[in-house]
Amino acid sequence: MADVRRDRGQLILVTGFALAFTLVAVVLLLNTVIYTENIASRGIDRSADEALEFRDAAIEGLGDTLIATNHNRSDGAPVTVLNDTAKSLTEIFTRIHTEEGTVAELDPSTLSTRPGTVLQQSDSSREFTSEGGAAVSWDLAADVNATRNARFTVHRSALDTATHFQVQLDGDTETWTVHIYEDASGNISLATESSLLSFDKKCSVDAATAEIHLTGDGIVGRDCGDYQWAASIDSNYTITFINGDNAAGTYNITINDDGPTSVNSGAFNGATGSSPREIDAAVYSATIRVRYETPTFLYESTVRIAPGEPDDD
């Protein structure tokens, strides 16, 4: 009889155990959910943003260096200066990110440059005519495949309302022209015209002097709408100044010079230095490998540095 009593309640015991296990299973599941919530609330890895920041800083830093070395050759050969800049940027970024195990690198051994030529006039009172005023309409360079940083500073007093100063790009099949002139209201104005599109005034400014970024957005500080350098040209082109006696000021144009490009050097003062008009070798663009690596992220690409170049080039 005593044995029988000891066996009683087995079923309840087994059930109790089964239910206990079930409850443990539920607890474990809830634990999983808590872990998931924890993952969900974790911050996002910002490596991708930082990589893009590094790349943009590299493009901007090297771009500024490129402009500066083109402008002031006494700093040394552009390649050396660009290399130094690449090293400095690498050092700065590595220092910032070292504690996170990040490698931010611009590899100087991958730096390559393309030669260019700067065509410029620095005497702000001079007209845009060729050397010695020989021609009012003259070619600056032929077979140009890319132009960047074409900046003009023009004075209203020299502009004409009827005979416009024009910068013409003559391609294989099409011609694109930008007019810089004084409109009926006496404002310095910018207009474009091509063999496909009729004369279209883009913008104007009421000022005695205007700065115009032809390979950028047009008149600096004004909204020139859809203005775009060489919008309809898809071949190499000749750059021509037309009616150069109807504008005066300074200009600075950097053209790519590693192809068939030929600069009309006879129309310029040729030598560098104190001469009021200049033509000088320069770096048109540079490329360098950029690498950004964290334990969870790797980005490696080639960046191209050509400050002041039209977006579509």
Binding site: S47, P295, T296, L298, Y299, E300, S301, T302, V303
Partner: peptide
């Protein structure tokens, strides 16, 4: 930019 040989790996 298009054409730049790029390596990208996000873990």
């Amino acid at each position: 930019p298009d054409g730049a040989a790029t390596t990208l790996r996000v873990q």
